[in-house]
Design a protein around this nucleic acid. Structure first.
Lengths: 341, 341
DNA sequence: ATAGTAAAATAAAACGTTTTAGCAAATTTA
DNA sequence: TAAATTTGCTAAAACGTTTTATTTTACTAT
């Protein structure tokens, strides 16, 4: 465990002041009129002995950690894992590191985690927030830490956010089903007040209303094992034999739904047409392949990081809330095609 | 941006020394014989004003950051995402935070990332390493930072590691295929010298040799788009019409392989039996469902964190390398069953 | 020669903790 | 009652930077 050498050690070696080295390292050599010979000498020595400044000390002094806190619902969910991957990439490219966690949609847990991140002096936050952390989020912003939300947003908060047109996309999905002759269309969704789920529900209902079709909504609790979710879906589908199509509100509901449908030995789309929110490797390869509402993951990550970096670089704290609503794409596949009459 | 108050501010408020507060906060009140009235008074005030120690300053002073560096091949890969999820959970439970990154199996990139983690004074590392970072890993260990590898290990390094019995499981998979009447069994794997891939290859070859069957190995480069991987697999399968079964070396090769098979309009398992390494949501729901070599993800994460925390708590640096080889499970499904004669 | 200015570098404070070493008062010992 | 010990607390150094304010040296103009 050899001791790392500090800027003071380096200064002693060179018989100069640590200040000078610091200036040079922080690109202030010119401004501070350090002679170019000295700059050269210092740089050479740094190279030679492999000196690296202690990031902790830098952070303590400057208040900047160059760390972004990323809080997703669940890193094991492919949607979030893919977003995380892209954000990570872009963050590192800009000199930022990522410290992350999964919220489990648990607001108490999330508040704890926010506190931990805050203790670590994270510079900025990217969050797919559970409900009920509005105060904490505004607190962060008041303290000067930018926050960008995604997937869903929080009402009455100053945070920026990137979401997709959830209502529009379920609306489009239902219309697609109607056009293909389906009339008894269910929406299996989460028992959640989060904006994205509410919007998806609204889009579904709006479309049904326009076609004067009856609603079949099943709301499932997020907080349970997959086994149980499947049981709930099975029960729902059994109770409603009149259904001829079903729209799933999230990727994992779609996956559980397919398992339920398999259990019931129903044919897709002959007995039941299927569309799911979020695309998934599975949907492409399933027989039949599953129509999905695919979110523009690349674009979402890009905007998230752009907004956050913008806030981190600017000194103008005054700018108002920034947001964007991106358009998902309905990828039509076999599971929702017209049944030959 | 209200200024956070420091231990000195707090000391002033209470008219005592910061030292005393520090002792109390670090559970040394008794040892340092601080009177219980004072302890009480301090704790009350801390509660009242919501004082939280500055973690950066603590880290600078103590050298401990309570941060674990997690480096996975690719966080978007469900195997790694699930491991990350479990590790994250266990780490937080023990007061550790996770800072993570994806290595892309790129050793240059990984070295950079290691340096970044080191700069951040990460306390310990969990890594699925690419080849070629042996020196760096040993360097970390020499500096007193424990490192636990997983999924694969590095030869001639002091790092602990957790792997699965890769050779044994491909051996078992091939035997299973043979027992079900398949004779021309291909192994589609990575063009990689990483231990896990080499071992998987060995198990495959051993089984084939014992049955005196001919080898059909296709090694695919990791560093390319999925589209291209699929093209390679298609070409391989077309070139080898005699094949009646194929074993895929990783989950994403399995997925790409299924796409290739679909393109070729081959029936599974009638035209081609399939087994893939790693389980995947897709494999369970595919028609037919896909036989998989499932890794004990929960157990892997548990052991990883246990070993790492053990190293982090102990002062005895002397202990020798710890390692474990866990047993994957062959989950037999429809894609590898006997064809009715 | 002398003041004034510019150039080049530095000392010291600050960031917020932990920890070592030690002091004064109270208590025990003999 | 004096010495020794225990109790209860604290001053100051240290961790490794950045930054402000300042000093020293060199040069220019009068």
């Amino acid at each position: 465990m050899k001791k790392k050498l500090s800027i003071v050690d380096l200064a002693k070696q060179l018989n100069i002041s640590p200040t000078t080295i610091s200036f040079i390292l922080n690109g202030k050599a010119q401004e501070k009129r350090i002679s170019s010979e000295l700059v050269e000498r210092v740089l050479k020595q740094i190279e030679e002995v492999g000196y690296k400044p202690n990031a902790l000390a830098q952070s303590l002094r400057t208040g900047k950690t160059m760390i972004i806190g990323l809080m997703v619902e669940n890193i094991a969910n492919p949607f979030f894992a893919n977003i995380a991957r892209l954000i990570e990439e872009k963050a590192y490219k800009n000199g930022y590191k990522i410290i992350y966690c999964s919220t489990d949609n648990d607001s108490a847990k999330t508040k704890d985690l926010l506190r931990i991140f805050q203790d670590r002096h994270v510079d900025g936050y990217i969050i797919s927030p559970p409900e009920g952390i509005e105060k904490e989020v505004d607190g962060l912003i008041d303290n000067g830490s930018p926050v960008v939300l995604f997937d869903r947003y929080l009402h009455d908060t100053k945070a920026d956010f990137i979401v997709v047109d959830n209502a529009g996309s379920t609306y489009e999905a239902v219309n697609h089903l109607v056009k293909n002759g389906y009339k008894n269309i269910a929406f299996i969704t989460l028992d959640s007040l989060q904006t994205q789920m509410q919007d998806r529900l609204k889009g579904y209902e709006k479309a049904l209303n326009e076609h004067a079709l009856s609603h079949h909504v099943k709301e499932i609790s997020y907080y349970q094992e997959e086994e149980n979710i499947i049981r709930h879906i099975v029960a729902f589908l059994e109770r409603k034999p009149e259904l001829d199509a079903v729209l799933f509100g999230t990727n994992y509901l779609g996956v559980s739904g397919l398992k339920a449908i398999k259990k019931l030995n129903k044919r897709v789309p002959e007995d039941l047409a299927v569309i799911s929110f979020d695309d998934h490797t599975l949907f492409e390869l399933h027989s039949p392949d599953i129509t999905a509402i695919s979110q523009p993951i690349e674009e979402i990550s890009e905007k998230l990081i752009t907004i956050l970096l913008g806030r981190l670089n600017k000194t103008s704290k005054a700018k108002k809330t920034q947001s964007a609503v991106l358009a998902p794409e309905l990828i039509v596949r076999g599971s929702s095609r017209k049944i030959k009459a």
